[in-house]
């Protein structure tokens, strides 16, 4: 399955400037992505997963952000490229799919034009060839009536169809890597299943790698090969989907899975993680960032500078606190202040 890695994220930090000081939204993240593989980055809002995606794409304003580390992609470090060099990568070798397909499309341009724009910048096709390729793409993403649809405007399509258009844009130049940021969050559940199946099919056909960013553990379990769980800007656990779901180790991963509504436990209260995710400016700088949310674990159980520990081949957990973690059943009422 996993061939050689072609995207290696090494110690990447992304810090935003807020009132003159920088705060890390992503801190020291290292991840590898392989061909033919779906890596899911999962976490709740504010964990830094989307920031990581836009960091890979180089979409941050350099005046407002400070980015450290290295992102090696096909032999070059994306973080050291100039804007022009990046433009040769974006759209051509890395395609991106966004959450809300209505706002992701220009309301005033026809569908065909918007798909073709990628081809305009990355290929030397003639107009006729581009037109044919656009139709082929629209067909490939399963939109009925391609001839008609390419002349329509975004608001004339349903949400599911719009997301297919966004996917067609992302795959126009057969990128090696696709980054999908919450691609199904705005869609109905039956449409979500169809879009995820489509993404998997395209990934197999194009032998591409996919980074799937989502908060939905169900989506991850259905789709991902590899999983990275993020909390407060850090990867706290990573491994294969099987490892993460069948043998979760980090207190955060275990808590998240436990807070999902489960079959046959309808009469029990759902598990609630104490406290809340700190805001960017109040994020602890050092130590185990999850410690404040599991206050019953003794301080000594945490590492001073939490690092990743291999618990089984390919399965890593941050901080040593997982060894002494046990659920302490919180009662309703014991919640964030």
């Amino acid at each position: 399955m996993a061939t050689d890695e072609f995207l290696a994220i090494k110690d990447v930090s992304t810090a935003f400037k807020i009132h003159g000081s920088y705060y890390k939204a992503v801190s020291d993240v290292s991840l590898d992505i392989h061909n033919d593989e779906i890596l899911a980055i999962v976490g709740e809002s504010g964990c830094g997963k989307s920031t990581l995606a836009t960091t890979i794409m180089g979409l941050h304003d350099p005046a407002e952000t400070k980015i450290d580390g290295e992102i090696d992609f096909e032999g070059q470090n994306l973080l050291s490229l100039t804007e022009d060099q990046l433009n040769d990568v974006r759209g051509a070798k890395i395609g991106m799919i966004f959450q809300d397909p209505l706002s992701a499309l220009n309301p005033l341009k026809r569908i065909g034009e918007q798909i073709q724009e990628s081809l305009d910048y990355h290929t030397k096709m003639t107009e006729a060839e581009k037109k044919a390729r656009v139709l082929e793409l629209v067909n490939q993403v399963g939109i009925p009536n391609p001839e008609r649809v390419i002349r329509q405007f975004p608001h004339e399509l349903s949400g599911g169809m719009r997301q297919r258009v966004v996917i067609a844009i992302a795959i126009a130049c057969k990128p090696d890597l696709m980054i999908a940021d919450e691609p199904t969050t705005a869609l109905d559940v039956t449409i979500q299943a169809q879009i995820l199946d489509l993404l998997k099919d395209i990934q197999r056909e194009n032998h591409a790698g996919i980074i799937l960013i989502t908060h939905d553990l169900g989506v991850v379990a259905e789709t991902a090969d590899q999983v990275a769980v993020m909390y407060a800007g850090q990867v706290v656990e990573q491994g294969s989907a099987q490892q993460i779901f069948d043998n979760p180790k980090h207190p955060y991963t275990r808590s998240l899975l436990r807070s999902m509504p489960q079959r046959d436990k309808e009469n029990d209260d759902l598990y609630v993680i104490q406290g809340s995710v700190p805001s960017l400016q109040k994020m602890p700088v050092d130590g185990c960032k999850f410690a404040p949310r599991v206050p019953w674990i003794p301080e000594a159980a945490h590492e001073e500078h939490p690092s990743m520990h291999e618990v089984e081949p390919g399965h890593q957990v941050r901080c040593t606190c997982y060894q002494s973690f046990e659920f302490q059943d919180a009662k309703v009422g014991e919640v964030e202040a």
Partner: peptide, 10 residues
Amino acid sequence: DYVRTARSKG
């Protein structure tokens, strides 16, 4: 968002 889409098209 559509500007972000355009930029990620290169």
